[in-house]
Design a protein around this nucleic acid. Structure first.
Lengths: 234, 234
DNA sequence: ACCTGAACACCGTTCAAGT
DNA sequence: ACCTGAACACCGTTCAAGT
């Protein structure tokens, strides 16, 4: 392999140099400063790189320092998520039916989760909290009340709706993020196509129907189905 | 600290000894043998300990050996999941309405995911496959057909139902598994109770309603809501 | 009081070298 | 052909020691 001598430096040195260039201004070692660096790493390299050690390196300190401000990695990730939710707070106060405004709000929530592949999965496995998350819940509850849902039903409905949106995002975003996504997709299609009709008669019968539709149309159908179910018991 | 001399041995040696005792019969280095060891580790220590290195150690070899039989860690985990799904294949062929039989089948699916805390989350972030998973899908589709759902709708419905069940399991099982589950639960209750009525009027108004119900009753309500929504568009 | 170096106990994956 | 030791490049968390 041909090597330019002036670039003859180890991979690690190159990486360190790149990191330093990305954070030319010294970021303060505070909760805010750490979150700032964490969000930058999230944008550039994904949640899996938002590690205690990686952040500490970016801040030119040891990993132990981060523990002064965050209990553990999960705590850090939850606070990152709430910061991201700050983008979608208020629903359009007017205009259109409550159902459509609720769907728009939930779609914006989904879009945030879509934008950061691994965050959605995190959201499912951790009890969320934080001011922006509470605002999202509150706004959605207001729309359900506007729709005339009884309190108990609205309380359970918001849980179901957010669970659905989060799960869809977790499912979808993983696949588009994974480098093997295309391969997996076709593997499923192959399995459906090759399904033995005597063992799996329904899968063989339905065939391509199982793979039909875009992510968006399925997402909307799911939301409509949930809302229809919630209203049907009135 | 007082130490009995006859037990003076390092932690690592003790661990190695325990592992050896757990696998007294030499397990063959084959796909089946590896899965066998993997399932045992899953039962005893949870999915997070089902690592390439851990399995290799149990089989008295290096981690590279496992890669002869499994592409990577995800591949290994997916195959473990399919083995677990083997427990719930056939629905009761007779007896009761199709809705109730479908709910029973999905509840059994949920129970499997509940029993292994981290598997449910895995199931959400990976395209599932394998004979037992296909059987589950096929059985559920048969019940939807019995209920008279049009094909396209049944195809989308099965996706939504399995997504719901998996997400519920992922959410619930994580909390019961985490050592801090109790603390988190009360932290949420506190947050709801302390919600500023001027910032979060809906949360303050609904209060305890948001935390009402058992996991089981909420799960059933969710299934009923989904089914009602699916049938309402007929 | 606040911060952190160093250590402990792990990971997944690759590849050259062995049988 | 099949298998694997050793290496590479990472992790989270703790704690004794520093300022």
């Amino acid at each position: 392999m041909f090597v330019h001598n002036e670039y003859m430096t180890t991979e690690d040195t190159l990486k360190a140099r790149r990191r330093r260039q990305q954070h030319p201004t010294k970021v303060a070692l505070t909760r805010q400063g750490i979150l700032e660096v964490a969000l930058q790493i999230l944008h550039e390299e994904g949640l899996s790189k938002v590690t205690m050690r990686r952040i500490a390196t970016a801040l030119d300190t040891g990993p132990a320092s981060i523990y002064v401000y965050f209990h553990n990695t999960e705590d850090l990730h939850v606070q990152i998520l709430d910061a991201l939710l700050g983008q979608i707070e208020a629903p359009a106060a007017t205009g259109g039916q409550w159902q459509n405004r609720l769907k728009a709000l939930l779609t914006r929530y989904r879009d945030v989760l879509f934008a950061y592949p691994e965050i959605a999965r995190m959201a499912l496995s951790t009890r969320l909290s934080g001011p922006h998350y509470l605002a999202l819940v509150d706004n959605a509850l207001a729309l359900l009340q506007e729709g005339g849902l009884p309190d108990r039903q609205a309380a359970w409905a918001i849980d179901l709706l957010l669970l659905y949106v989060t799960a869809v995002a977790a499912e979808q975003s993983t696949r588009q993020a994974a480098p093997s996504a295309a391969a997996e997709e076709s593997a499923l299609a192959f399995e459906v196509a090759a399904a033995d009709p005597s063992r799996y008669p329904q899968i063989a019968r339905l065939g391509d129907e199982l793979l039909s539709g875009t992510g968006q149309s399925r997402f909307e159908w799911g939301l409509d189905t949930l809302l229809a179910g919630m209203l049907s018991s009135d």
